[in-house]
Computed example of a mutant assay.
Amino acid sequence: MTQEDTAEFTLRLGSGEVPLSRRHRHRRVQASTVRRKPTRGDTLSIVTTGVTVAIVAAVCVLGGAVTHNPLRHLAGADTAPREVADWWPLLVYGPWMVASLSILRAALHQRRAPHSWCVVLLFSAFAIVLCIDQAPRTITSATVASLPTIATVACFHQLVRQITLTRPPRRGGVANRRAPTP
């Protein structure tokens, strides 16, 4: 191979040279990504998702505000100092919030998050049981005590569904599929 031939296979970067193999000479021409103008349906879908996020945030804040006092009363003066009792609901809603963020991240990456859903459901069940325990012993009171947590989980589930519908999986191979075992 002459020096002219090697010059053909060399890429000059700054002060150094990087030899290219023959297979890199025949690069596939990738289709240029042309951005299309968003349709009314695309715009409506994004607006709907934004409204859903706002409603879920409002329901979560309201649900947390309503259930905070019953959960705080559980860690009363006989259980913990007042400063600690004020933060006690965080033990219920902290894991719930972390698992919720994990679920949202998984939904954005078109992945499943079954363990995080288990954490959300478990700590939601804790919140429901603890709030019902603090409520008067009537069916109506138990329903009122459990409704904020149930509404929060239902709204959060619908938000995750909205995200997975607005970001459909990419065409091609399935990322999480395992090969069948013989």
Rank of each mutant, 00 (worst) to 15 (best):
C131Y: 01
E83F: 09
V160C: 04
L159T: 00
T149C: 08
Q162S: 15
T138I: 04
S100R: 03
L104N: 04
G76K: 08
E83V: 12
I150W: 05
A65V: 14
W117T: 02
W96P: 02
H115Y: 12
S116V: 02
A75M: 07
L159R: 03
L91K: 08
L121P: 05
Q134K: 11
V84S: 06
H115C: 09
T67K: 03
T67L: 08
S116A: 15
I132A: 14
L159I: 05
D78Q: 14
L90M: 11
T149V: 15
P70Y: 09
S100N: 13
C118G: 05
W88D: 02
R112Y: 06
S116F: 04
L104V: 13
T152I: 10
V120M: 12
T79P: 00
W88T: 12
T143S: 10
V160P: 03
W87T: 12
V119D: 03
V119N: 03
R112D: 05
P70N: 12
V98H: 06
S116I: 02
H68C: 03
P89L: 13
R105K: 11
W88R: 07
M97G: 12
D86F: 09
A99W: 04
I150F: 10
C155S: 07
A135K: 05
I139H: 10
V144H: 04
A154C: 08
A107R: 06
P81I: 02
V129W: 01
A65I: 10
L122F: 09
L130H: 01
H109N: 07
S116P: 08
C131G: 00
H73M: 11
P81Q: 03
A65W: 14
G76N: 15
A142M: 06
R111M: 03
V144T: 11
P89W: 12
F126A: 09
A85L: 06
G94S: 03
T79A: 13
H73F: 05
L71W: 09
I139D: 12
A113F: 08
A113R: 06
L101R: 04
A127P: 00
F156Q: 07
S141F: 00
D86W: 13
A135C: 06
L121N: 12
L122S: 06
E83A: 15
L147W: 07
P81G: 05
I150A: 13
S100E: 04
L90R: 06
Q110H: 10
R72V: 06
M97V: 15
P89V: 13
T143I: 11
L90I: 14
V92R: 07
A142I: 02
P70I: 13
V129K: 01
L101C: 12
V144D: 06
Q134A: 14
L121H: 07
M97P: 03
T152G: 02
S141V: 00
H115T: 13
I128D: 05
L74Q: 07
F126V: 10
C155K: 00
R111A: 10
A106F: 11
L122D: 00
F126E: 00
R137K: 06
V66L: 14
H109S: 03
A113W: 09
L130M: 13
T138K: 01
A77G: 00
R137V: 10
Y93F: 15
L159D: 01
R137Q: 12
T152M: 15
P81T: 01
N69R: 11
S141W: 04
Q134R: 13
E83Y: 10
Q110R: 14
T79S: 12
R72A: 14
P81L: 02
